[in-house]
Design a protein around this nucleic acid. Structure first.
Length: 590
DNA sequence: CAGAAACGGGG
DNA sequence: GTGTACGTTTCTG
């Protein structure tokens, strides 16, 4: 099955992992919920004195302690893997463990249980997994909402299966509200339309007006609009549901109105309700088993614009202006009926189709990133690129037998935030119109420097070792041997990327070419982000020295290249970080 | 000028 | 939910 979503529930005080997937069969698609009762949470404890520490841990009632060998930034280390009974034991016992005199550090104590599962089992969301188990009847904590939902209990660990892009059922939605006084207020302003569009010919607007209209599904009242919305999703059974600012507008609004009108929002494939997860300052709307992606958040990361309205993003992506009505006047179009109302219907439809098209355009990259980073698409679509890299590295660390560094404390974070790194070399452009220009740029300059100079927190040294790379200006030194953790990972990423690029070049299949292009693009983005995160204040592998050394080498390389080019008659007129423009005049040559 | 508050998107 | 967090711009004292 394709792994779409994952979480855990507690059954009889024990954690049970739930894998949500879809099996694409010949006649009928099946929704699968697979339970794994065999996985237990654990943390790493770095002891001062092994035996004393073990005794102290035991005195806290912790009896599942295993002494194992791991690496900490390349250094061999004996640590305790302490297995607990329930994920919530971790925050409960963390302070007590931390308080023990023989405990030097606790590691990997803040990795959500389901993420731990994905990493440890080596399985990837949006990829194929093989599961073996027994079919079971629905229980009180997990019950099927429809006939084609299959519940099973996993017997053997799930296995990753190499697979292509999954074909997914995607649905987009968008609501319209009648708000005559300022911004919509869910206590009084009714929902007048819900637009829904999908990749299987679905495209409609549910509304209390618009009888016998070609794309409008007439509802008797607002309550029925919401019921029809719920029914449409249940019948269609999308893998993905996309909206635009739906985390903070559409879904919260729907939830409030549904509560007011007594409509059940039991959209989850396990029959559970739409719910909101507090993720810092923002909320995210979550439906069990259906991946809700808020495209607004995704687009803000994907492109650099002054504004990120649906209209602006659509124009940028497709070069087409879409119908835009003034938000504060929509209620007038609604009240006026006739042609105005007709316009409003078209506006609602265009909005939901535009949302769908943006989703269609941007989801492949995010799907691929989800498969590479190895975290659920729901989570990934809400992560900054820095967080995406971090989770990718946490998975790699596990593969490499490394224990991940902890997140910075509040104080560490404040200190880091006050620091900045000198950027790339910039030569202000020479005024005037230049002709006969040549362009020069380095391919993946920063990733290449990280690899060739072995720039990594675990290779940074102040020792007297002669076998080091010496960074310009700052004088930071990096061991030539052994290969650092992050250089190794970037090396893997770039190697895989070049393999895909060759494969892409050799392919005759247009669809395959497109797929491979998305994959290599995802890897490129990941590699390029890895430099930036050395200076990212919340990064576990934060390393200011590394960030400074990289840009210093970068400045050194470009300046030297410009000097070299000058000898051949190239006069540079503008330079920025990893490339420059030059005019060519052979007479300058000497 | 520093620190607090507001903003983004949505209708 | 192994909770608790964004980056930037504008206002306020």
């Amino acid at each position: 099955m394709i792994l779409l979503d994952i979480d855990y529930v507690t059954i009889k005080e024990k954690p049970v992992i739930r894998l949500f997937g879809r099996e694409q069969g010949s006649e009928d698609d099946k929704i699968i919920i697979a339970l794994d009762k065999s996985f237990k949470p654990y943390i790493y404890v770095i002891p001062s004195d092994l035996d004393l520490c073990r005794e102290q841990l035991q005195s806290l009632g912790l009896d599942n302690i295993e002494e194992i060998k791991r690496k900490d930034l390349g250094r061999d280390l004996n640590v305790f893997k302490v297995t607990l009974k329930h994920p919530q034991d971790v925050p409960r016992l963390r302070d007590d463990i931390w308080g023990l005199s023989e405990v030097k550090e606790i590691r990997e104590h803040d990795i959500p249980f389901y993420r731990r599962y994905l990493i440890d089992k080596g399985i990837f969301p949006m990829s194929e997994i093989k599961i073996k188990g027994d079919l079971i009847k629905s229980s009180s904590s997990v019950f099927s909402s429809s006939k084609n939902t299959q519940l099973m209990e996993i017997k053997n660990p799930p296995k990753h299966v190499e697979s292509d892009f999954p074909e997914l059922k995607i649905l987009s939605f968008d609501i319209e509200v009648r708000n005559p006084d300022g911004m919509p207020n869910a206590e009084k302003d009714e929902i007048i339309m819900i637009g829904i569009a999908g990749n299987m010919g679905l495209d409609k607007v549910i509304s209390t007006k618009g009888e016998d209209h070609q794309f409008v599904e007439k509802a008797a009242n607002e309550k029925e609009i919401l019921e029809k919305f719920v029914d449409t999703i249940k019948n269609y059974q999308p893998d993905l549901l996309v909206g635009y600012n739906s985390d903070n507008f559409d879904f919260p609004y729907i939830k409030d109105r549904a509560k007011l009108l007594g409509v059940k929002m039991d959209l989850g494939v396990d029959g559970s309700n739409l719910k909101f997860l507090r993720r810092g300052f923002a909320n995210s709307a979550s439906i069990k088993g259906i991946i809700h992606v808020d495209l607004y958040l995704v687009m803000r990361r994907y492109m650099h614009l002054d504004r990120y309205t649906l209209e602006r993003v659509y124009l940028e992506l497709f070069g087409e202006q879409k119908l835009d009505l003034p938000g504060d006047k929509l209620w007038k179009y609604w009240d006026a009926e006739g042609e105005s109302l007709e316009k409003l219907f078209y506006y609602a439809r265009e909005d939901v189709i535009a949302t769908y098209e943006i989703g269609e355009k941007i989801l492949p990259l995010n799907l691929e990133l989800s498969r590479i980073v190895g975290q659920p698409l729901f989570d990934l679509s809400r992560m900054t690129t820095g967080q995406q890299v971090e989770w990718f590295l946490i998975r790699k660390a596990h593969e490499f037998g490394e224990i991940a560094p902890n997140k910075p404390s509040h104080t560490q974070y404040s200190i880091r935030r006050g620091k900045s790194v000198e950027g790339g070399y910039v030569k202000e452009p020479e005024k005037g119109l230049h002709e006969n220009i040549v362009q020069f740029d380095f391919r993946s300059l920063y990733p290449s420097i990280i690899i060739s100079k072995n720039v990594s927190p675990d290779t940074l040294t102040d020792g007297e070792d002669l076998k080091v790379y010496l960074a310009p200006e700052s004088g930071y030194k990096f061991l030539k041997e052994p290969r650092g953790f992050i250089p190794s990972v970037i090396g893997q990423v770039l190697k895989e990327r070049s393999r895909l690029k060759y494969k892409m070049r050799d392919s005759d299949d247009l669809l395959e070419k497109k797929m491979l292009n998305v994959q290599q693009d995802a890897l490129k983005r990941l590699a390029n982000t890895m430099y930036g995160v050395y200076g990212y204040s919340r990064f576990r592998w934060y390393c200011l020295e590394c960030a400074e050394a990289i840009t210093a080498w970068g400045r050194d390389y470009i300046k030297k290249t410009m000097e070299e080019a000058k000898m051949f008659g190239f006069h540079s007129i503008y330079a920025d970080t990893d490339g420059f423009y030059a005019t060519y005049n052979p007479e300058y040559q000497n």
